[in-house]
Design a protein around this nucleic acid. Structure first.
Length: 546
RNA sequence: GGCCCGUUAGUCAAGUGGCCAAGACGUCGCCCUCUCACGGCGAAGGCAGGGGUUCGACUCCCCUACGGGUCACCA
């Protein structure tokens, strides 16, 4: 078999040689230890929490080592291409603070190692493919879909491993004249890798996350170039990551099964292998069982969802980081105010097993993150969210920034800040009673209180409210009102003998709280009244009596 | 089915032969307290099972079970 002739026959239009390509991709000039990582999505435009998990791993690995993080688009399958898919991916990630140094951008490329869309790299792949043919490491296969299907059926019937290998690899050693014949007939062909592996050979391979794993050699002659001359993922992965200088390949652990093939490919092409980081998968509880999150079935895990819900970007990042590195949480506890960029990220602290997404945990982290913000920050973030999701509320916030910031300042700062906002979408409800446009009477006074007592208390309050009083004076006044109306001013005393009173100062406060805010619970009533102002406070108390 | 990965409480997890098996979230209770939130204290809850190796196994080895992944001209 004259493999040089075969190569010319198959890809006559490819004049470039691997050396020519190599010359276009010089070694990256980076400091010692710098990691080059990439995100390589297909342009479906959909990203879920598991994708972010991987993306953040890539991003942190590169950016904590002085390396490069780039975006490559794996658009070799037309079925996976969605209009604007690339733009959506870039924008979604940008919102979550994941930014690329290099690679595909919305309307082109940025960087010296492109093109970054695989659809623009056909010549490159074919150049390497042609070289493999010359070296006898790849061959054409003219099987039709039906023929392959028949082979598979036969293998299944005989309980054999399915695939194109051994005696089933019917074109593997086909003579030149048969190939020539098919070519003359214009029959389309795929290019297959000639595997020299055997399933009887096992070896260890070190993964950066999983550690040593057992690998069985691949003996299947996988397709490397499809009949349209476009590579499969496997081939594109080897060629691209080699040329683009990727040092660390971060990908989902479902790729573990094709790792043996990838190892063969790198060897056959004479490429140095990158390090591999196979990450655990994001799982979902489905009928009591855990299963991999899927794009199609689980839209609620889509990143767009969290954004629309109003989770702060930093909270999502903090949450993911606690999942990513088991020591992050501890670090954050010790360094509540440091930017998370200061955390020393490492694959050594990554989990090997799949994880369930924990909304409770995210909410908790989010509350903590927001509690550390200033009122102005909370205002700005809430406004930005509202502009996208709740225009009327945005208008309301904008109508009086100072007022809104005062509201958001309640219980903020200090050692024990309030932590009752987890989502920007919750702010509206949180501040609603400060705005007449949003004010609603939600809770009412429990039945067991005598209405006349309630009214008497409110009347006393109306007559004695002094908006210029300090907080302690204000509270004293509430206690006086309590006492004058038969309610116990001291909680300890009340608890010792509750039957001796109509109620306690706590109940008096409750009447006022319900009258003024429309609800049973609120932040500090004194501060609430200060912000509302005398007119509104008295007005609401008056309204309540009506 | 073959191959591969995994299995510490409801969830996320520390643990690397010597513990009474950390911590966080969630749950429950108590305290603080004008309510809520915060904060403090406390409780319940776990090494999948069985064999080895060892003076001693969550930690090492084997088997079983269970879960997950993958077996395309998709990535």
């Amino acid at each position: 078999m004259d493999t040089n002739l075969l190569a010319e026959l198959l890809y006559p239009n490819i004049k470039t040689l691997p050396e020519d390509i190599e010359a276009r991709y010089p070694k990256r000039n980076l400091p010692e230890g710098a990691k080059v990582t990439r995100l390589a999505p297909s342009p479906t435009g959909f990203l879920h929490i598991g994708n972010l998990y991987g993306a953040l791993t890539d991003e942190r690995l590169a950016h904590t080592s002085g390396g490069v993080f780039y975006l490559r688009i794996e658009d070799t399958d037309a079925k996976r291409t969605v209009p604007n898919g690339i733009a959506i991916i870039i924008e979604t990630l940008a919102k979550l603070g994941v930014n690329f140094d290099e690679g595909a951008v919305i309307d082109g490329d940025k960087g010296d190692y492109g093109p970054y869309r695989q659809s623009d790299r056909a010549e490159i792949y074919q150049t390497y493919a042609k070289q493999l043919i010359r070296e006898g490491k790849a061959y054409p296969c003219f099987c039709t879909e039906q023929e392959l299907e028949a082979i598979r059926t036969k293998q299944e019937e005989n309980k054999l491993t399915t695939g194109y290998y051994g005696e089933f690899a019917i074109w593997r050693d086909a003579p030149m004249d048969k190939i020539q014949e098919k070519l003359n007939e214009g029959v389309p062909f795929v290019l297959r890798f000639r595997s020299e592996g055997s399933v009887n050979n096992k070896f260890k391979f070190n993964d950066q996350i999983k550690g040593d794993i057992d690998v069985t050699e691949n003996d299947i002659d996988h397709v490397i170039l499809k009949s349209d001359g476009i590579p499969t993922y496997h081939f594109a992965h080897a060629v691209d990551d080699h040329l683009m200088g990727t040092t660390h390949v971060v990908r989902d652990e479902s790729w573990l099964s094709t790792l043996p093939f990838h190892i063969q490919l790198f060897k056959a092409l004479g490429f140095k292998m990158p390090k591999y980081c196979h990450t655990a998968q994001a799982l979902k509880l489905d009928n009591g069982n855990k299963r991999k999150i899927s794009k199609r079935k689980d839209p609620e895990f889509g990143l767009a969802y969290y954004h629309a819900q109003g989770y702060p970007v930093s909270a999502v990042r903090e949450y993911l980081l606690t999942m990513l590195n088991s020591n992050f949480e501890e670090w954050r506890l010790a360094n509540p105010d440091l930017p998370l960029e200061d955390f020393k990220f490492t694959t050594k602290k990554m989990s090997v097993s799949g994880f369930l997404f924990d909304l409770d945990k995210l909410n908790d982290i989010s509350k903590n993150v927001i509690s550390r913000m200033t009122a102005d920050e909370v205002y700005d973030f809430t406004l930005a969210w509202a502009k996208e999701n709740d225009e009327p509320f945005a208008k309301l916030l904008e109508s009086n920034r100072e007022y809104a910031v005062r509201i958001l300042s309640i219980g903020r700062g200090g050692k024990k800040p309030r932590k009752d906002i987890a989502l920007w979408s919750e702010v509206k409800n949180y501040v609603s009673f400060f705005y007449d446009e949003l004010f609603e009477r939600i809770d009412s006074i429990p039945e067991n209180f005598d209405k006349n007592d309630v009214y008497a208390v409110l009347e006393s309050f109306k007559n004695s409210y002094d908006e210029n009083a300090e907080q302690s004076e204000w509270l004293n006044n509430i206690k006086v009102i309590a006492e004058n109306n038969g309610f116990c001013p001291d909680m300890k005393q009340y608890k010792a003998d509750p039957d001796a009173f109509k109620g306690s100062v706590a109940d008096v406060s409750m009447f006022l709280r319900i009258a003024v805010t429309g609800r049973m619970n609120s932040p500090d009533l004194y501060e609430v009244m200060q912000i509302l102002g005398r007119e509104k406070v008295i007005g609401r108390v008056f309204d309540f009596k009506e």
